[in-house]
């Protein structure tokens, strides 16, 4: 399984903080993102209408990368700390 986490505004809008996705549905980050846009009717708009960053195993990733069983993938808005 792949553990998917959402943070901040994105998690609020999707109404979920985490979910599990079978690895065969998400063999790389692009495939996972595509899967998520089809997960619920309104998710496509929420996920594609705003900047959305991603991290794999707690490291920021810009491009599409391969996933393996047990990976943790997080999606979140641009950060605003400090």
């Amino acid at each position: 399984m792949i553990t998917v986490l959402f943070f901040a505004k994105l998690s609020e809008q999707l109404g979920v903080r985490s979910l599990q996705v079978e690895w065969r549905q998400a063999q790389d980050t692009d495939q996972l993102f595509q899967y998520l846009t089809e997960y619920k009717a309104e998710w496509a708009v929420t996920l594609t209408s705003q900047p959305c960053l991603k991290a794999v195993n707690q490291a920021m990733v810009n491009n599409n990368i391969a996933l393996k069983e047990g990976d943790e993938v997080a999606f979140f808005p641009p950060v605003t700390g400090g």
């Binding site: 943070f7 901040a8 641009p78 605003t80 700390g81």
Partner: peptide, 20 residues
């Protein structure tokens, strides 16, 4: 880069996520 997000509560109680 650090994954922190601020959410403001404004006068009147309305809340708003801060934009980067």
């Amino acid at each position: 880069e650090a994954p922190f997000w601020k959410k403001e509560t404004m006068e009147g109680g309305e809340t708003k996520w801060v934009d980067a």
